[in-house]
């Protein structure tokens, strides 16, 4: 099975003011696989994830050095249009944050801001992606009610539909199940396993078992440094570094 690199990270360092959050990271994220970024909290997992769609830009006093390229283009190139870059990636955050509007408008938000105005086309998109995230049956009768009325699990699936509706190539998940109950988490995980046939998925998680269940490829960060990365099987079964062994055994939390 051949592995194409989708996101190439080279010597990436990120500083918040004087603090260095990421230290010289180089890693390749394979296409159409699930990559799990694991490590104890505060180790820079989320920073790495948000570097991919340059959401770290809006943090005050942030500095970045190094390179991230997607399909060969450097995303830190100042000429690049950030909005188009972000359109290529759907983000699922720790807890679902539905936009302050109806279920329908949440899914239609992305297509609309990118210029789709026709009602029929939007209707199709909304239905398609709500089905894609297995939410359609539950909400088809109340599409125009506020999204905040959904349960947390439903909201997270809505956020997934919202993210898919801009037709991204990559799905980024920042501990996407941490606010959900076990059943709702399971549904999201199942969704990921189905979606990886068509999307590259990067998931940050601090739940080791989740990483084991989902990941094809694993990146282990510790205190801003990349300790180990490789195919999931290798990393989990025979970690090369002592820190990784410790983390997997549960010694380092």
């Amino acid at each position: 099975m051949e592995n194409h690199t989708h996101i190439r990270v080279r010597e990436l360092s990120v500083y918040y003011g004087r603090e260095q959050a990421l230290k010289n990271i180089s890693v390749d994220i394979p296409e159409k696989r699930i990559t799990a970024i694991i490590g104890p909290s505060g180790c820079g997992k989320t920073t790495l994830l948000k570097s991919f769609n340059r959401l770290i830009d809006s943090i005050d006093g942030v500095r970045v050095s190094g390179e991230i390229s997607m399909n060969g283009d450097n995303i830190f190139n100042p000429k690049i249009d950030v909005t188009l870059l972000r359109k290529k990636m759907g983000l699922l955050s720790q807890r679902p944050h539905p936009l302050p509007m109806s279920i329908y408008d949440n899914v239609a938000y992305g297509p609309r801001i990118h210029g789709i105005r026709k009602k029929r086309k939007l209707d199709q998109i909304v239905e398609h992606y709500l089905k894609e995230s297995s939410l359609w049956e539950e909400v088809r009768d109340r599409l125009h009610t506020p999204a905040s009325g959904l349960s947390v699990g439903q909201q997270q699936r809505l956020c997934l539909a919202r993210g898919l509706a801009v037709e991204p190539e990559i799905i980024l998940g920042d501990e996407p199940t941490s606010a959900l109950d076990p059943t709702a988490s399971q549904r999201i995980e199942e969704k990921f396993l189905q979606l990886k046939a068509r999307y590259t998925i990067v998931v940050v998680t601090h739940i080791l078992r989740q990483a084991v269940r989902l990941a094809d490829y694993v990146v282990f960060l510790y205190l801003g440094e990349l300790i180990e990365h490789g195919p999931a099987e290798e990393v989990f079964k025979s970690p090369k570094k002592e820190l990784t062994q410790g983390y997997i055994k549960g010694v380092i939390v």
């Binding site: 249009d81 909005t83 188009l84 801001i113 990118h114 210029g115």
Partner: peptide, 11 residues
């Protein structure tokens, strides 16, 4: 072309 003009009006 249509896509890029859209981007321009947004900008």
């Amino acid at each position: 072309r249509k896509g890029s003009s859209k981007v321009n009006t947004r900008k």
